[in-house]
């Protein structure tokens, strides 16, 4: 029994690593976001020479930023819940509700991002679709790829969370490092 539990947790921890590493990488995207737009502001307001690319670059980076970070946020328990009842439940009931939530709500939603999103990426990729929102006209597929990648990362992290729920259902307590379901602000 003990062996399976640690097996569950070991698998969950391995999946957690994926989300954590992805989060630490994606967090860096704020740097080019700030730099690109600051450069544009200086070029535009001081030198009357706005760039062709800043408008598109901003939404491409910002859109990818928050989608790709969603799995990391899930790992950190950062997606907000209405915890008025939930917080007072014993861990087993919390885990049962979470498990049902992941299977009935989370995976269908994430599956749409992953599979339907992939279709949009693939079509943009093979047709060399470009954005027409500026004369820069960058290709769209890197931006559209963010959707299925976000879906895949979320799905992996969802599996990890389900494993933790199973562990909790068996042992009656949440695994140690996941105890405080708070954002560490």
């Amino acid at each position: 029994m003990q062996a399976t539990e640690t097996g569950l947790l070991r698998a969950a921890r391995a999946l957690d690593r994926v989300a954590i590493v992805s989060g630490h990488l994606v967090a860096w995207m704020i740097v080019p976001l700030v730099l690109a737009l600051s450069y544009e502001v200086v070029a535009r307001y001081w030198f009357n020479a706005p760039t062709q690319w800043a408008y598109d670059m901003t939404f491409m980076l910002y859109g990818s930023f928050f989608m790709l970070g969603a799995a990391y946020t899930l790992q950190r328990k950062g997606h907000v819940r209405t915890d008025s009842f939930y917080a007072n439940w014993p861990p087993r009931r919390q885990a049962a509700v979470d498990l049902a939530g992941y299977l009935l709500m989370f995976f269908p939603f994430v599956g749409v991002l992953l599979f339907v999103g992939w279709g949009y990426f693939w079509k943009a990729f093979v047709t060399h679709e470009t954005f027409v929102s500026s004369s820069w006209q960058p290709i769209t597929w890197p931006f559209k790829l963010a959707l299925p990648v976000a879906g895949a990362l979320l799905a992996l992290q969802g599996i990890s969370e389900c494993l933790k729920c199973l562990h909790t259902l068996r042992s009656g307590a949440w695994p140690g490092q996941d105890a405080p379901p708070e954002i560490a602000v």
Binding site: P50, T51, Q52, Y55, V132, S133, S134, S135, Q137
Partner: peptide, 21 residues
């Protein structure tokens, strides 16, 4: 603000900074 498409590229060719929205 110019319409989307090749018109944007025409303006770019003219040295005019066009965005479409």
């Amino acid at each position: 603000r110019a319409p989307p498409g090749l018109v944007g590229e025409i303006f770019k060719e003219m040295g005019i900074n066009a965005v479409a929205m």
